[in-house]
Simulated scan of single mutants.
Amino acid sequence: MSDLARTLYSDLAGGDTDAHVHLSDRAFLDAIVEFESALVDAAAATGHLLPDVADAARAAVAAYDYDLVAIAEDSAAGGNPVIPMVKEIDTEGVHVGATSQDAVDTALVLCIRRAVDAMDIDGVIALLEALARDHRDTPIMGRTLGQQALPTTFGVIAAGWLGGVRDAATRLHDAAAALPVQYAGATGNLVATHPDGITIHDRLAADLGLADRPLVWHTNRLPLVTVGLAAAQLAGAVRKIAGDIVAYSATEIAELAEATPGGSSSMPHKANPAAAVACDGYARRTPGLAATLLDTLDCRWQRGTGSWHAEWQTLRDLFAATASAVSRIHTSLDGLRVHTDAMAARVTGTDTGHAGDITDLILDGDHHE
């Protein structure tokens, strides 16, 4: 349990921790070790390391067993965990031509890629598709600016939720797929492994399954900022659904209800939409974290002074919050009770326009002939 993200309660309260295990301190340091191992292989494959040196380096990295607390404490002196880790391995051929930022950035990329893959976004999309399809023609009173407006259908409302999540998910998956390896050396010119540096770089990218361009992004933080903003957009898309479910679940409206609502410590009559409320709470943290990422674009000279360091925790917190928001909206939607009689009772008029057709188009991915 201690190998989840940063705060045990927050991760466990999110429900599904599959993504969080890839965002923990241990996962981060494990990914640094993975980078060092893959770098030895890439340098050996391109002939930059002699076979006996490469074999010894591989063995040293494979046998390396770090102490998480000790590495954290030792990181204070140099400002990052790579320095004490490489010092402890202390073998020729390890960290060849690399700088600390190469290992840290690549480790973050690996953690983020795996966290995105572990989020049950497809499960949320499937629940929304079923909800929209089942209630294609269920009449409900539309509401705008807090007031009743004109009739629509609950199917088109659910389809709207679906469209937002699906679009945000596409952006997130695209941004994660584009995340690159980082290997450029002390000042970003691969001088330490010249003339093999670019060949090692591209082999390293291929071995880790990462993009090989941009070639150097030590001070071009757009790859991480782009994927972080995409995560915040997904969190915002599920938060919109959560807010609607909370509103539709209000006692005075009672058009929706979660399958397993939460109770109250002092008011036993309450049936709170607890999962939707929790989703809102997790998602509400993401705009501030995304703003911090935007601030890291101010990356001075050839190594960020504080801006780079601010990314490590911020990115993992952002993805952990997003993963928890996705998990909680999944719980909220799973078995969601749709009180069609309560919806119909408030409908004035019968014209729902092309709501059913719009629902079908959104379900079909907004395709048209």
Rank of each mutant, 00 (worst) to 15 (best):
F319S: 05
G288K: 03
C299F: 01
D317H: 06
L289M: 05
G304C: 07
W301V: 15
S307A: 15
R303E: 12
H309S: 11
A291M: 11
T314Y: 01
H309C: 09
D295K: 09
G281N: 10
L318Q: 07
G281S: 14
H309I: 06
R284P: 00
T314N: 00
L289Q: 05
W308N: 05
R300P: 09
L293P: 10
T292D: 10
R316Q: 07
C299Y: 11
P287Q: 06
A291T: 14
D295W: 10
A283Y: 00
L293W: 02
L294Y: 12
L297W: 02
R303V: 11
G304H: 04
W308V: 02
Q313D: 14
T314V: 11
R285K: 02
S307Q: 09
W312K: 06
H309L: 10
S307E: 13
G304V: 10
T305K: 08
G306T: 12
G306W: 06
L315A: 08
L315E: 09
G304M: 09
R285M: 04
D280I: 12
D295L: 14
D280Q: 13
F319Y: 04
S307M: 01
L318N: 01
D295H: 14
Q313C: 05
F319P: 03
T292H: 13
W308S: 06
E311L: 03
H309F: 08
W301G: 05
G281T: 06
W308C: 00
C279W: 07
A290M: 03
R285I: 01
Q302E: 15
R300L: 15
R285Y: 00
A291E: 13
D295E: 14
L289C: 09
D295A: 15
T286S: 08
F319Q: 00
F319T: 02
L294I: 15
F319A: 06
A283Q: 01
G281C: 01
R284W: 01
S307H: 04
L315R: 02
W308E: 00
L294S: 03
W312P: 01
W308Q: 01
L318V: 02
C279G: 06
P287E: 08
